[in-house]
Write a protein that binds this DNA or RNA. Structure first.
Lengths: 232, 232
DNA sequence: GTCAAGGATTGATAAATGTCAATCAAGGAA
DNA sequence: TTCCTTGATTGACATTTATCAATCCTTGAC
């Protein structure tokens, strides 16, 4: 792949401060692929041969056990995913599948580790990324262990609203079946949870959500930056 | 603190490969403290001023929200904790409290970050530690989302047995109230779960657990390295 | 030894959540 | 357009888990 093909990669926090030559070397070994929707990119337990960078489209990260499946996260452009497995040279803990058509850069894990060893700026960026990812998963664990499914939904909606710039109405980023799995509940339970939140001014129309009275919903949801602020 | 006082710190993966001079500088700013049981070491939301290294005793890491509390992890010697907050220079996401008398080294976070910038070997070790911690939390999330409380207990017992060297009987490392919280259930539910596992050869006598037929318990628990192997 | 305190267990009951089945609604293909 | 597929919703019911209260048991202080 030509190093200057995708300036948005270079602009990512992870690559922004790399030495120019290093970045070029890394990109020379990388390649871009286009995938249709519903394609398995990664399976749990496989060796982590590539660091993935999502340029376009949506990807879901999920895990399975004993015939059950749960959605752990979704990624939107431009983000890397499964960095920890790449760094540890350990098997993937999650599977990844495209939700839409997607354009993805694949960087050989070996090259990433080599660049890490050679470029202090890159090393710093990787650590920042990992520490942030770590904290993000811890927040998610607190969400799961300390809150009921109704409380999780309420706080999820407040987070999404924030992401949408604080507007009173916004679209869910994917279907409700996936949202239910992400929040650790069944679609039926989610459907009933939405109905319960009507009492706090939440209205839905398909995938569109309107929050009538944010303060009222917050009184119920009790959002907390140490759980719900997914940026620090 | 005198740098050579505690060779077990130097032996930790995190510090093992540091340059000698760097390690000494780091230790000069550090100090050791002894704490009685049940002492709050860290509160959620506080700035992360120190990286902690547990030399002796047991420490619990927990989180609270809306009057509820949940145990997220316990640490045993010799381990560091809350590395991610130190690296990010962000507030603690968990609180920490001694469970027993404990001896702890406190290293100013600023010094850790300086050492990280100056010593590539230390940087590598930090990344390895973070990536491992990250993966460990992901495994825990899978455990929580994919398994019932009974299945979580069964797999927990198999992990503890493994840690005890595979012996058929071993002691729980702390009381059942804490174990229940760690597994995300109430003490009453845990008590009943232990009773249910009698059908699979699990016997308890206070804090002592005996696994009569490991293969039988495994048939029920279906342990999976991508969830239960907490070392890779 | 006795006693007090806290954890563990048990029983009864309630609440939360999941399952199954049926129906409904929306969107894409022809 | 019409049909068909898939996701969403609803109702009835089962299961899991929590709550509350009582009792039991262990352990440590005296």
């Amino acid at each position: 792949m030509r190093p200057d093909d995708f300036p948005e990669i270079r602009a990512l926090p992870l690559f922004r401060d790399m030495e120019e030559e290093r970045f070029h070397a890394l990109m020379r070994g990388a390649y871009v692929q286009n995938f249709p929707p519903q394609v398995d990119l990664i399976r749990e337990g496989e060796p982590s041969d590539f660091l993935h960078v999502l340029l376009d489209g949506l990807v879901e990260l999920f895990a399975t056990w004993n015939g059950r499946e749960t959605l752990l996260a979704t990624t939107r452009p431009v983000t890397t995913f499964i960095l920890a497995a790449t760094i540890r040279d350990a098997p993937y803990l999650m599977a990844a599948r495209t939700m839409t058509r997607a354009r993805i850069v694949l960087i050989p894990s070996e090259d990433v580790r080599a660049a890490f060893d050679a470029d202090p700026a890159f090393a710093r960026a990787i650590v920042a990324d990992l520490a942030q990812g770590y904290r993000s998963v811890v927040k998610n664990t607190k969400d799961m262990k300390l809150r009921s499914s109704l409380e999780r939904l309420a706080n999820y909606l407040l987070r999404e609203q924030r992401r949408a710039g604080g507007a009173p109405a916004f679209d869910l980023p994917f279907d409700k079946r996936r949202l239910a799995s992400l929040l650790g509940m069944t679609p039926e339970n989610l459907s009933r949870a939405f109905k319960s939140l009507q009492a706090y001014g939440v209205a839905t129309d398909g995938g569109r959500v309107a929050i009538g009275d944010q303060a009222d919903l917050e009184r119920f949801a009790k959002p907390n930056p140490l759980i719900d602020d997914r940026t620090t």
